[in-house]
Amino acid sequence: MKNRLEEIRKQHGIRQEDLAKVLEVSRQTIGSLENGRYNPSIILAFKIARYFNMAVEDIFIYEEEE
């Protein structure tokens, strides 16, 4: 699953550390999400979407595997 987290975070001018603090996750989790190495739980995906006032599917892009 791809995501636009890094792009959206930078648009909002927020650092990884600060986003991690607000979402109560580690900074490494934010880094892994941005790199696409880790897919978040539904709860975390909603927390992120709610924080940026966006829909989940605007941040996380699900592509069906071929």
């Binding site: 991690a20 603090k21 109560e24 996750v25 580690s26 490494q28 989790t29 892994s32 880790y38 978040p40 739980s41 709860i43 975390l44």
Partner: peptide, 9 residues
Amino acid sequence: EIEFKDERN
């Protein structure tokens, strides 16, 4: 506590 409960961790 956050590090310990972090879902990825």
